[in-house]
Every structure is written in structure tokens, then in C-alpha cells.
Amino acid sequence: MTAMVKSEGVHKSFGAAHVLKGIDLEVAPREVFCLVGPSGSGKSTFLRCINHLEKINAGRLYVDGDLVGYRQRGDKLYELKDSEVAAKRRDIGMVFQRFNLFPHMTALENVMEAPMQVKREARAVARARAERLLDRVGLGDKVGNYPAQLSGGQQQRVAIARALAMEPKLMLFDEPTSALDPELVGEVLDVMRGLAEEGMTMIVVTHEMGFAREVGDSIVFMDDGVVVESGHPREVLTNPRHERTKSFLSKVL
């Protein structure tokens, strides 16, 4: 079985800052894969490389067997065109820390936008699916609200519905609960838990160790641009082998 995501020696620099220093990992289909680590460790950057929001400088990154951002012919790599990159991103949903909902559209319009604009779906079809998805994340009564009229937790749930509307085979979560008030974290994690139970492949950058332990199938601890430790969440979170993992976990748990 091909891995959903495969990373081989991925490096990324922003100018002089070497953020990723050779990341090797594999995410299997239907797996819930958690990325944890201190801020600045490169976990969000790595996530953004997976859907080519950031270009990697070295190594190879594959999603569902396809090279991310390039086409390989012989030994040569060819950059993909804007439209080709966009086409690949259709299958990868992404949820951001700051929600990034489109503020000039209602919740329903936010969810309908991509299917109609990218897949040229008929309005009625897009609308039916959007209503179903918003209902599923518990916002069936908020379809007509603008993002500014929703709480952080509600906005993030709309953002998840928006990503799901493209029927992705992989979902990326970039600290989805870090910008939320503590009492709103649960409602977003519940939606994510439901998604995991349905078998969605998920890569989650998070500080929610409870979620990682309960829902995660694998966990990777990153620090300073490298993978320090990986394994099953219960194993890594209860018996960390490395000093850095230990000291990090002692601060967040």
C-alpha cells in the first residue's frame, strides 16, 4: 500500500534560517498522525510543505505517490504550473490556526465557494453538501451567519466543513485549537475525533496531548528542524526515550 504522505530528507530554509533539517517520515492511509514539539521546531512549516504552500529546498515529498510541486522526468525535476499545483491541492484539505474564513461570505458561502469555483459544481449540489456538512459540525442553524458573527470554535468548525467540501483524501490541521478560548477547544476536537473515526487520513500539528493520546495512531516529536522521536502516542507520551522529549512533555502535560 502506498503511503499517503512520504517525506525523504526534506530540508527547508527561510533565508539564513534552516527550519527543516532532513525530515523522513511516512503517513499511512486512514492514519491520524500527530506532530508535536516546541514552537519554532518546524512542524507547521513541514505541514505547509505538504500542500506546497512552502517550497522545499532539498529532499522529496510525496502525497499519495505523487511528487509535491514537481514533475520528474529522468533525473530532472520540472516545477508544476500554478494550475497544476492548484489541482493537486484539491485533494488536500487544510485547517489553519487562525481559521482564515472568508469574511465577506456567509458560513454557507464559505463552504460552497471551492466546490463551485474549483470543481465547477452546480449551485444546488454545492449547497446541499454545504448544508449537510455544516449540520454535521453542529452549525446547521448558523448557515447564514458571517464569520464575524460566530465564535472562534464555530468559525473553526466552519473551516473544517469548508475543507471537507472538497472531499479530500488527506486533511492537514495546523494547530486548529491554539487560537481558541479553553472552553471552545472541546467542540473542535469532537469534530476532529468524528472525522478520525470515519477513517480520514489526518496530520495534526497540535499542543493537545490528550487528543494525540486518545485519537492519534502515531506521534512525532520535532525539535529544531529534526524528528527527535516517533512512535505510538501512548508509548511516546508516557515513556519518552529522549531527554528533549522528556523536558518538553514535562512542561506541557
Binding site: L53, N100, A114, V118
Partner: peptide, 9 residues
């Protein structure tokens, strides 16, 4: 970024 991530050009 959100728009690009949804596959919009």
C-alpha cells in the same frame, strides 16, 4: 493561503 489550500488558482 486558505484560498490556495482549497485548490483555487
Amino acid at each position: 493561503e486558505a484560498s490556495h489550500a482549497l485548490g483555487m488558482t
